[in-house]
Nucleic acid binder design. Structure first.
Lengths: 200, 200
DNA sequence: ACATGAATGGACTGACCGGTCCATACGTAC
DNA sequence: GTACGTATGGACCGGTCAGTCCATTCATGT
């Protein structure tokens, strides 16, 4: 990335990432060609390679980072303060609201993960890092709750966080297959019930 | 499918499906070419089209059915008798054992679902039907448990089944990203804790 | 205005892939 | 043994895709 970017160039690059992210979310990495992206962004082939010298790989990496930031940002206010039962309920509602308002069902990161994990270890590692960070917020909140006496002393925040995280992503997978937000709600409610079962 | 199959032909067809299923499980539908399958099965291009006249679509459909049956068969003895807490614990262990013994991480059906849902509605519908059937076993068991007084009368078997199913598939997704069976165990234990919270 | 480098357009290429086609080998019924 | 249908081999075709290349336009500093 030795080339300089003018304001115009940066805007074009950002436009490419955003639009391509939606295209890939809708049709998958393998199902989206550079020509699709070129058409969708009103750019030319040379621009794609100008801004992403590494070609599709570069672009996919940028999109993965963009998607991950977007997903985490939407929950950020809640993720930072998961130290009370009310906060968890609020997080649950914000997750449902966020994924219910998306033009597509399912989780952008989860979908890319399962598609790339078997074909592109480099990208998969990057995406996995985002998922770990995400799950870390849940664990940290549970840890604080345990230390505050809201959870039983023998509760395992890491393990509980994994379980909640699995419910979340499983629920998101089911929203895809059913084209409905209901499974996500059921999954998250189940996860919260599970947490309450570990209350002090 | 008007052609006749001799015993030899049926054996070849079965060999193609089994081997191709493993290839696709390892590298995805889009990441597996007919040439890969041809090489992996020691057959020729014409045989693939001889046994699957509809081409790759036909083959993928056959593989999806094969995978689904394989997965359900592995749990069948447990799925039919999910009407006690002991049975659920046994199911949990059998699921962990089954997915832990696979050469690859994650769920064959889940992976195909999320890959095909955006590109091939026909296959996605077939795979979704299998997932519904699978989830139905869980719901039926919970219904029997509620009727037997093991669950609270106001428990919603359908909703609980969705939640457990989501935990299962979320856990399987995490086994992929972490290359470890631990997340699945945590997810299933969480799901069982959630069920116990609905006990009478 | 002119020079420099970024931004853009789009034709072109080589590889890959799904699918077709024809030729050959095999097996079985008569 | 011969005739017919299945099983198999592999060359070939047309389309698509990622990636290359060169020409042109635009913006900016001097």
């Amino acid at each position: 990335m030795s080339t300089q970017l003018t304001a115009k160039g940066a805007a074009t690059r950002a436009r490419i990432v955003e639009t391509a992210a939606d295209l890939i979310l809708a049709r998958g990495v393998g199902g989206t060609s550079l020509d699709d992206i070129r058409a969708g962004t009103a750019t030319s082939k040379s621009q794609l390679f100008h801004y992403f010298p590494g070609g599709k790989n570069d672009l996919v990496a940028a999109i993965a980072a963009f998607q991950a930031e977007r997903v985490l940002a939407a929950q950020q206010p809640f993720l930072d303060t998961l130290d009370s039962w009310e906060a968890w309920a609020g997080w649950r509602d914000s997750v449902v609201a966020h994924y219910g308002s998306q033009p597509h069902w399912g989780c952008p990161i989860g979908a890319m993960t399962s598609e790339l994990i078997n074909t592109d270890p480099t990208h998969a590692a990057a995406v996995t890092a985002y998922m770990d960070r995400w799950r870390g917020y849940l664990r940290d909140g549970l840890e604080r709750m345990r230390d505050a006496g809201l959870l039983r002393a023998d509760a395992d925040p890491e393990r509980l966080a994994i379980s909640v995280f699995a419910s979340l992503h499983g629920g998101l997978l089911l929203t895809q297959t059913t084209a409905s937000i209901a499974p996500l709600e059921a999954a998250l409610d189940g996860a919260l019930a599970m947490l309450h079962a570990a209350a002090a």
